[in-house]
């Protein structure tokens, strides 16, 4: 799907940045790259442009520009309802953060089952049952 198809509050993973010349280059230098997580924040009252959160920064893109960005929808773990089994796509953080999570069995590709939604969240992974803080869960993206 295209980035411009996201609804308010939804997150996505960039898979491809298309377009040519200035616009292509500008999107890249703002840090919109394959593998980047983007959240749709709000739409302008007139329907265009749209504000997105990218690498902790709010950036406004016109629909014409957002359509160059190919994405796939992902969901932060903290928004997954209890009872569901989901696959981890991405862990958004530094090496230390990723290590801590991998010790709980939360790494890209692995399945996670949500036992309790809040608070704290409790999940079952290959390595057992763990409690995860909501802040941490918001940086684990699943599908």
């Amino acid at each position: 799907m295209k980035l411009s198809d996201l609804k308010v509050g939804e997150s996505a993973l960039v898979t491809k940045v298309e377009g040519k010349g200035a616009i292509h280059r500008r999107l890249l230098s703002m840090g919109i790259l394959p593998g980047t997580v983007i959240r749709m924040v709000r739409i302008s009252p007139l329907g265009d442009p749209i504000a997105y959160e990218i690498r902790g920064v709010f950036i406004s893109l016109r629909r014409d520009e957002a359509k160059y960005i190919e994405v796939e929808k992902i969901v932060p773990l903290n928004l997954v309802p209890p009872g569901e089994r989901v696959r981890v796509i991405l862990v958004d953080g530094g090496p230390g953060f990723m290590r801590n999570l991998s010790e709980m069995g939360i790494t890209p590709g692995k399945m996670v089952e949500i036992l309790r939604g809040c608070c704290p969240m409790s999940v079952r992974t290959e390595l057992g049952v763990f409690q995860v803080g909501m802040g941490i869960a918001s940086r684990v993206f699943v599908r």
């Binding site: 940045v17 292509h24 280059r25 890249l28 230098s29 840090g31 790259l33 394959p34 593998g35 903290n78 953080g93 530094g94 090496p95 230390g96 953060f97 909501m134 802040g135 941490i136 918001s138 940086r139």
Partner: peptide, 28 residues
């Protein structure tokens, strides 16, 4: 090529960032 070089640079920036900065308060 443009996407690739931007990715090389960003992964350096990303790595450096996580090496020197530790988030205090995420979410919220």
């Amino acid at each position: 090529i443009e996407t690739l070089f931007a990715s090389f640079r960003y992964s350096f920036a990303h790595g450096l960032f996580h090496e020197v900065a530790e988030p205090i308060n995420v979410g919220g």
